[in-house]
Design a protein around this nucleic acid. Sequence first.
DNA 1: AATGAATGAGACTTCATTCAT
DNA 2: CATGAATGAAGTCTCATTCAT
Lengths: 185, 185, 185, 185
Amino acid sequence: MRARPFAEITVADIAREAGLAVGTVYRRFENKDALIPVLFEIYKQRLDGFTGPSGGIAVDPQSGLKGVLRQLATQSWEFLTQERAIAREAHLYARLRPDLVGAEWDALLAASQASFGALIDAFPGEVRRPRDEVTEMLAYHFNTALTERALYPDDGVGSQMTVSELDFVRAIADFAYGYLVTEAD
Amino acid sequence: MRARPFAEITVADIAREAGLAVGTVYRRFENKDALIPVLFEIYKQRLDGFTGPSGGIAVDPQSGLKGVLRQLATQSWEFLTQERAIAREAHLYARLRPDLVGAEWDALLAASQASFGALIDAFPGEVRRPRDEVTEMLAYHFNTALTERALYPDDGVGSQMTVSELDFVRAIADFAYGYLVTEAD
Amino acid sequence: MRARPFAEITVADIAREAGLAVGTVYRRFENKDALIPVLFEIYKQRLDGFTGPSGGIAVDPQSGLKGVLRQLATQSWEFLTQERAIAREAHLYARLRPDLVGAEWDALLAASQASFGALIDAFPGEVRRPRDEVTEMLAYHFNTALTERALYPDDGVGSQMTVSELDFVRAIADFAYGYLVTEAD
Amino acid sequence: MRARPFAEITVADIAREAGLAVGTVYRRFENKDALIPVLFEIYKQRLDGFTGPSGGIAVDPQSGLKGVLRQLATQSWEFLTQERAIAREAHLYARLRPDLVGAEWDALLAASQASFGALIDAFPGEVRRPRDEVTEMLAYHFNTALTERALYPDDGVGSQMTVSELDFVRAIADFAYGYLVTEAD
DNA sequence: AATGAATGAGACTTCATTCAT
DNA sequence: CATGAATGAAGTCTCATTCAT
């Protein structure tokens, strides 16, 4: 998958790569589509491995709201770039075959929202927007904003940027910070 | 494409839909891949048709920076949801076949950055960040933040949201506003 | 089919035999199973070609009931042995895939019964059994009795016979004759 | 086999059904084809079990030639319908793979002829045809006439009949009776 | 001796592409 | 210039058979 998207990979390719015969792959998986959820499973394992046993990204509350958001963005960025190949396929197949990975993705998202809820509760005075909206929007923003450039550094919107990666990640965090601390209307 | 992604559509489907014979399609296009840029061309035409002959989205500077950003977000949202099918394919193929649509996408992005540059120049006192970074980040943000929910309303990150579409679009604009008006450090 | 049953023939075999490419076969037939009805269609054409434009086997009523039955048996025998390959497949697939050829077979059978009805009406004094039963049983008998030896001369029940073919066919007719002219009880 | 013909049953199916591993099946049988004779063996056992230790179907000579033939037809009919699944496969494979079951079938047939010989010897005055022909033709007739309707009640020639099973079986016997008691020419 | 995971040849089917009409 | 039947490479999947455990 580092080279070609899943759809263009044949079962024979997968078998060869895995050092198995084609029939052996079919012994374990009903058909080629049944491999997609596995893709996602691996993605989740990598994610778990990254966040560590505590289950959440390690942040230092002493660094203030903006600092915490920047730490979060940085950690997410590092994960996405390190695991680019698998993350790209996971994101792509969430779109191409939502029937196969949709439910798993929802669970990930719910966990993400919960952790954002805990985060803003740690800074009660600064956040000036409804808690429900905030958790949803933060989860959405961190999920979508980083992925484009992290997963497709050579194509599309992210590839033409001159801003450094460091500044880019900071800016993404600052979008979130600015949203939280400004009045809704 | 309203029903199936381009890869799953056969050349025979396209010919039938166009009222042509398969061979006729091949008189005009080298091969099936050569149809992808056309997809993008159509996307650009639709975009042009939407923005109107002036070439830019109509906004009212009297409504202030936040107001302008919200108008922009709303207009973009409306375009994306109205042209969901074609926009989805354009975005998807920018990822699946960057070699075929990458250059066109870059041109679109450059235009977008230019227009954001003009926009912030209209509010010199309020924006507290470097102009270069701002134009890039705004173009990036408006391009990525809205697409996920607009193009994939039934799947993925956008499908689980309880925030109304109106509040969602406003929030996306407010992310941008908050980013612009807060200090960089 | 002269050599192997349909199930063991690959689509590639059929294409090669027909001087076509595999894809061309699939241009005309949905899938391999869709070829089975064609088999049957050919069988019916051969049968039509054999019975001639009059639509029925030519018999001479002057030769009496037994004579007519023998003529019928002889004609049927000749058809079955001449068209052994196609007839064998038609009979075999009526059993292996009744869903595909059942309805066609029923039509053939109904025609056969009608013609037997006309036949016995020509000899009102001699037939001592109910007309309904007689038409059904004659159609059944002529259909099943001849096929075994005609279609599988080298195997099974028919292959071990020492009775000459001529005597065999006569005997089959005589079974029918004896049945018709003896009392039911 | 009650549901699908042998060709569509996998070796894994057979092993599972037998409570064995696939490899164990291959310890006992050279290959899948080697199972076909077993099929036939089972058929013969069932047949032996039906006819009883005496080795022949029990008939009452007091009931006359026609009565005896009817008893025979009835007994055969009952066996075939009771053991439909195995009988169907035995008959089918006698055709599909004559090389594997032909010899066994011949033995069965010879026994059948012998028993018909004994039968007609018990009614010397009534049978007006050469003994050799008669034994062969009776064995052939009882073998082929009943099988079609007994084994394929839902398809083909037998499925469209309105004659009751009882009358059908009687008629099959009466074909034989009529053949025996009428003059050859 | 029994197991059953692994194997891979080969079957069916699709569809981008060609080319005679 | 348009047509669409023909093509055949290539992909998915099945299953009889093997063999290390």
